[in-house]
Structure formats: C-alpha cells, structure tokens
C-alpha cells in the first residue's frame, strides 16, 4: 500500500526537517510518495526526492498553491487520494489547516498528532493535552493523519527518486492571500531545535525577557515561553510552548521562571533533558526536571551566560 505525504513548503523551500521526521514515522506503512504543492516547487521537489524512503515525488505548481491556502491544496490532495491508502503530513499549522478538509472531502476521519504507528490502521495519539494517550483503530478506507514530528527522528539521504509533475486543480477562488508577516529569525526553529530556552511569568517583564533571548542566542537555542509569559505580553504567541502552543522535544529544555502549569508541561515533557531554574522550590516544574536549580533567575541567568 502506498502513502501520500503532503510536504510542507514555505516560499518554494521544503521544510526538510519536518518532512524527514514524518517519513520516519510513516516507514512501517509502505512506499511513500511525497506531494510538493507550491507556486514554484522544483527545488523543494528535488530536496524531497533525496530523502530516504521516498519512492516518488509528485510536483504540483500553480498560483493558487503559492501560499498554502486550504481550499486549492485540499482539492488537489483529494483529487489524488484514490491511489492511496494513507494520506499524511507533519502536524504543523500548514497541514492542520489542510488535512481535516481533505478528510471531510473524502468522508473519512482525520487522526491528528500521531505519536506511534502500530500498523496500517492502528495509531497512538495524545488527548487532553498529552495527559492521556489513546490507541485508536481506524475503520475508514483511507486513513488521513498528521504526525507529531518531535517524537520521531529524521530519515537520512538517498539517491534522488523520480519527480513527476501533476496538474493543480482549478482554484475554487474562495480565499485570497493578502500578506505574510513572517518573523525572520537567525535562531533555530522552535519545533526542531536541539536546545530550547524558555521563560515564564517569573521573568517579570518584556524587558527582562531579553536576558532569556540572550541566553538562548549564546547557546544556539530556540526561544520558548509559557502561556503566562505570552498572555502578559513578554513574548510573541508563536514562541508559546504547551497545550495551546507548540509541542517540543529538544535534547535540552531550559525552563527559566516557569512554574510548570499542566498546560506547559504537556508541551515539553518529552524533552530529553529538562533543566528548571525557579525561586519557588515547590514549583511543579521541578517534578519533571532532571536538574533543578532553586534561586533568583536574575542572578543565575547572567552567571550562566558567563560560564557557557
């Protein structure tokens, strides 16, 4: 049976890490064809073709596919679906927008955030913000799923697979792109960074949050924040780690001034090593931390900067 993987692209560039991790999740399901749907996707298609496990790349190019709008992308995926037993994508904002619509067009359910693949119809996925894990069996003829990339490793490279062009479907003209206000950053992407440094309510102000950012930059890390820090305006929402933000699982997660609300823990508890710095020695974050340092972050963070 063959799997169709909808690749994530941004301005014609492949989100290689997310696609490579999704490929390793899908490996038990059979041959994988990757669909690159973009305005100009030739470069992304070549990149995808060289990822291990890809049997073929389907390249669909068209104006309506340039900005990831859901309606033309979902119509395209649905038009190709009859050849496939599984339709998958990384569980990012891009695919979460598109795949449930695809599932509805095919009259099947969608499985979001799959964290384990047991067989063609059997998967694990977290519910209640990761406070429970469900094993579910699909009874649908086509299984549509998104994969939580942070729990899978990335596949390696291979000799490039063939790239085949497919026609984009007619643009239904239901929505138009107006603008992207992308945050240009030299820092690693939060969802795939090896190290994440996060700040919480204890950081105290937007100005103080600069110290968290400097520490992250010094460590070559991505910057994260708790929901409290985001709600208080210390950090932008797309830095939010937790149930209502991003789920991360880096090698090292450094939580500074974060108490460890259930909703935050749900987003980072799968990190390999967790370090917590907090002045409250009863903070719940210490229950999940591998290394706990009780003390004033305003003296600890500068000292840490100096010693790294």
């Amino acid at each position: 049976m063959t799997v169709l993987l909808l690749a994530e692209t941004h301005q014609g560039r492949l989100a290689t890490d997310a696609v490579a991790r999704t490929l390793s999740a899908l490996a038990p399901l059979g041959e994988v064809h990757v669909l690159v749907a973009a305005g100009d996707g030739a470069e992304a298609a070549r990149e995808a073709a060289s990822l291990k496990g890809v049997a073929k790349v389907l390249l669909a190019e068209g104006e309506s596919l340039r900005h990831g709008l859901a309606e033309p992308a979902a119509a395209l995926v649905a038009s190709l679906a009859s050849e496939y037993r599984h339709i998958a994508a990384p569980a990012t904002a891009f695919a979460r927008n598109i795949l449930p619509r695809v599932a509805a067009l095919l009259n099947v359910m969608v499985l979001s955030d799959v964290i384990a693949v047991h067989g063609a119809d059997s998967f694990d996925r977290p519910v209640y913000a990761g406070n429970a894990v469900q094993t579910v069996e699909s009874t649908d003829p086509v299984v549509v799923l998104t994969v939580r990339t942070s729990v899978f490793g990335a596949v390696g490279r291979q000799e490039p697979a063939p790239v085949e062009t497919v026609a984009a479907v007619a643009d239904p003209g239901l929505s138009v792109w107006i603008e992207d206000a992308a945050v240009v950053s030299e820092r690693p992407e939060l969802a795939s960074a090896r190290i994440v440094v996060s700040g919480g309510r204890g950081v105290g102000s937007k100005e103080n949050f600069d110290a968290i950012i400097r520490l992250a930059d010094k460590m070559g890390a991505a910057v994260g924040a708790s929901r409290a820090a985001v709600d208080l305006g210390y950090a932008p929402n797309d830095w939010q780690v937790g149930q209502t933000g991003k789920v991360v699982a880096p090698d090292l997660y450094l939580a500074v001034g974060i108490s460890g609300a259930i909703q935050h823990l749900a987003g980072m508890k799968d990190s390999k090593v967790i370090v917590a710095i907090n002045k409250d020695e009863d903070a719940p974050i210490f229950k999940v931390a591998d290394y706990a340092l009780v003390g004033d972050l305003f003296s600890i963070v500068p000292e840490l900067m100096g010693k790294l």
């Binding site: 359910m109 469900q134 069996e137 508890k269 229950k287 931390a289």
Partner: peptide, 25 residues
C-alpha cells in the same frame, strides 16, 4: 470511524537532582 482501543497515562518523568550552583549545573 475511530475505535478507541485503550486510553493510558503517558510515561511519567521522575524528578531528577537538585544542583546547588550554576557551576554544578
């Protein structure tokens, strides 16, 4: 369409060690 086979608690992390200083950390 989805049959829920079972629902379990996720693997729990155990608390690690307290470190006394930045140097030790």
């Amino acid at each position: 369409r989805l049959k829920i086979v079972r629902t379990v608690e996720p693997a729990q992390r155990v608390a690690g060690v307290r470190v006394a200083s930045v140097d030790e950390l």
